[in-house]
Amino acid sequence: MIDLDLVKLWDNAFYGMAIIIFLVGFWIMLTHSNLIKKIIGMNIMETAIFLFFVAIGYVQGGAAPILDQQGVSYVNPLPSALILTGIVVSVSVTAFALSLVVKLYQYYGTVDANEIAYIRRNEE
């Protein structure tokens, strides 16, 4: 039922690997209770999507989109432009999440989600 076209998969390894990295990031985010680890996983997940996006815009034999040559084929500049935005967004989310984590550490003395939940349950 499942027949894998290996040549196509090899050609599309960028997409496949990006999705695998995305899943790894997802897995880090879900299984680790340490909040800083979760944030690292979040970053890995987002960069994987960015890799996927940039790979979409690639053209075989294309040059970087600095338009100072004539008669050359360029890669698609649109995904690059979008990803520039995406990187900045992900940095800002990371910074804010880290400030929340620092604040949580002041309150609970730990950055582990399970321990925090345990402390909370004991309080109630």
């Binding site: 960069t47 890669v75 995904p79 990803i83 940095v91």
Partner: peptide
């Protein structure tokens, strides 16, 4: 992949600032 803009930004932001923020 011939996206130098994204590469520079990622090197500065992803590898630089994010790492520093995580260290902080």
């Amino acid at each position: 992949l011939h996206s130098p803009d994204v590469a520079i930004t990622e090197a500065a932001m992803g590898a630089g600032v994010t790492t520093l923020l995580l260290f902080a």
